[in-house]
Design a protein around this nucleic acid. Structure first.
Lengths: 170, 170
DNA sequence: ATTCTAGTTGCAACAGTGTTACAACTGGGA
DNA sequence: TCCCAGTTGTAACACTGTTGCAACTAGAAT
């Protein structure tokens, strides 16, 4: 079963005393706090994004939304994504374009993290570590650059798929 | 003048005794060495990619190629990009989608590097550092993942634009 | 130099993503 | 309850990237 499964959140691996577990603040609360108009459609879409255990692309998001509001339109999905992105409340991912040119979205977490995408099985491993934080700081300082969004993605092969490729040579 | 200017290669910043300057091996030589058929179109496209000082997207690449071979087709450009990507000879970048949904390409360098994209002026700063190498190693080891391609992109504001925004508030 | 063919090209049609002008609708403040 | 700035659905659009197919060609064999 290919595609977009989060195998593990690796934040624990990089944990030091001050590292927390990855958490996602409420998008709705944020929107309200910022005085942004809450429409039926936005409430629905935000809820779906917030609650989804996997990374959704625009088409999938629309599909799910239509189950609860058949009338909702593609353009509203894109506009809402644009809104959330503009507010810095969601991150946009490519996941190494494992399947097509989709973009995936996830509610912004309290800690930035990387995504490792397996070319064979499509699994997505999330990985956060202090080394990433250090690198960001270094880039900002030495590149003299005010970073607003960072995206680190890697493509390759997960442990399971390396083993599988060994035992049953393609 | 917005878009896709490489302000500086920052490899020097992160230099230690073993860091070299970023260099790009010859794509043509690699293709020949791998026994890949060299057509007129491929030679042309590869040359353009190799010689370009800036990051090209498919459309721009086609436009430049047409100056020298008016008959060349869009699909050939995409197929050649696919070939080079598959051979691991070029890297695909999004540059934070500063303008549209284009993908940009650059000949693979001897050292991976990050791209910092300025949301205001569109400048692209390339940044390589040992900290990036360390992070890659750590991810591979602790995530138990065989990394084939890595992409680290950041969006934000370069020094010049932060200053400009200060003096002439938009 | 000539022949031959697997691999490549141009073409044309297509699917999918993301954008936009506009008229109708609505959230939420007065 | 009223009202209107802001949002929505609609329908068109531009653009990226893909694919089946017939014609062409690089380069190995002769």
């Amino acid at each position: 079963m290919r595609g977009n499964t989060i195998i593990a959140t690796e934040s624990q691996l990089g944990r030091t005393k001050n590292d927390g577990v990855i958490s996602r603040p409420s998008l709705m609360k944020e929107l309200i706090a910022r005085g942004i108009r809450i429409t039926t459609q936005r409430r629905l879409l935000v809820q779906i994004i917030q609650d989804s255990p996997r990374h959704l692309d625009a088409a999938k998001l629309l599909e799910i939304a239509k189950e609860r509001d058949a009338g909702i339109d593609r353009s509203t999905v894109y506009r809402t994504i644009g809104l959330l992105k503009g507010q810095g409340l969601i991150d946009e991912l490519d996941l190494m374009h494992l399947e097509g040119e989709k973009h995936y979205y996830e509610a912004k977490t309290n800690r930035d993290h990387c995504h490792l995408a397996c070319f064979r099985c499509g699994a997505i491993i999330e990985y956060a570590s202090p080394a990433f934080e250090k690198l960001k700081d270094e880039m900002a300082k030495r590149g003299d650059f005010a970073i607003r969004v960072v995206r680190l993605e890697a493509g390759g092969f997960c442990r399971r798929c390396r083993k599988a490729a060994h035992s049953e040579p393609a």
